[in-house]
Design a protein around this nucleic acid. Sequence first.
RNA 1: GGAGAGAUGGCCGAGCGGCUGAAGGCGCACGCUUGGAAAGCGUGUAUAGGCAACCCCUAUCCAGGGUUCGAAUCCCUGUCUCUCCGCCA
Length: 427
Amino acid sequence: MIDAKWLRERPEALRQALTDKGVSVDVDALVRMDQERREIIITVDALKQQRNEISKAVGERKRQGENADDLIARTGDLIEEIKALDTRLKELEADFEQTLLTVPNPAHPSVPVGQDPSENPVVRTWGEPLEATDFPLKNHLELGEALGLFDFARGTKITGTGFPLYTGAGAKLERALINFMLDMHTQKHGYTEVFPPFLVNRTSLTTTGQLPKMEEDMYLAQVDDLFLIPTAEVPVTNIHQDEIIPEKELPLRYTAYSACFRREAGSYGKETHGFLRVHQFNKVEMVKFVRPETSYDELETLRRDAEDVLEALNLPYRVLELVTGDLSFAAAKCYDLELWAPGEKRWLEVSSCSNFEDFQARRGNIRYKPRTGEKPHYLHTLNGSGVATARLLVAILENNQQPDGSIQVPEALVSYFGAETISADDA
RNA sequence: GGAGAGAUGGCCGAGCGGCUGAAGGCGCACGCUUGGAAAGCGUGUAUAGGCAACCCCUAUCCAGGGUUCGAAUCCCUGUCUCUCCGCCA
């Protein structure tokens, strides 16, 4: 949620920022609501003051055994008026709040203005994308099915399309990846591991920004009005919902494995085969709660921590900085990490590292208490995938394939996986 | 799912319809004390909104309604937590 101060002090800047983000919001209507709201508050507070003074005087008299009927008689109109104004104020504030929740987070000034994902500048490339070899490169589906790593047909039978069933070495490889990443973040990068609920309520989704606008993208368990998480960002960010954290405890860094569920409504078609776009996938997520002054440094180290995973697995990747129009609803700045998949001959997004500044903190009422004893302030939240498998698995298979169709397991993964290769003989 | 108990500040915990934004304790911050520390002593310490304003005003004792001139305190509804029983990985 944006700070309502924007509306009073810099409505023009807000309008421009929202245009850059490619969203149209009726800023004038918000400004009007805010003004009317404040006018009513001024009036009704003054009336309440009068009422309180009279009540106090009544109490004074009663204590001395005197009659106070004349004073009580004076409150009649006052009370009616207060009731009416309070009712109107309440409606107005609810309306204002609801509207404010639909306003996206403006981008940080450093973010390049642009509309289309194709405009996202590449800020870094690591490793050599594998283009040509002396044998024909297969894609992950061909490799995996031959090796019995997964079974899409049966996954579809069990649930429907986009719900992968991992089998044998594939299941183990997936588990190895998750453990490898969690260990790296906890042992090397200083994160605290958590294992969150996979179902969340509406309040939690409002904090992180999926609600109220993206309800259609999620799976809903209707009877209990709970949603399957699209990312561990949701439960983990809400760990500190409605809390005031002492400054000395910041930064807080969490890492969590979770399955992620996304309906991906409207994205059927090509580019969705195999693991490229599925409804359920596994992801190790990193979430940070930090002091505002440090959040952009923390974004860089967050990205570094995600890159570390890819480098340890020796996978070529590139980093994109998202232009204003490609930023998500809640993000002020975001980097995407993409792995090269030689079998698919394309880059696959495996991580998004974002700074939300105080946008989520304001929605979830997450604050910190400064050392100096000042009043609590909203802190800044960040999160990044560290990283999303399914696509990570795709890249590992395609980058480490051998002429005979077997897979060389990346060295860093061997101790987790328990073997150096995956071949058809093992199956 | 059935029965009962409860929800007060960062935490614990008191609270008669008015003088209670809320006793007391803990914690925390600062100061005194000390060679240094502990102990001890003193002072301070909720949040939000309005306002130029740390003065002031308004609101907040789970949430929403109600009674009343006045509600943490009385009434109704809801939510959540705990205990016991049932079911269950």
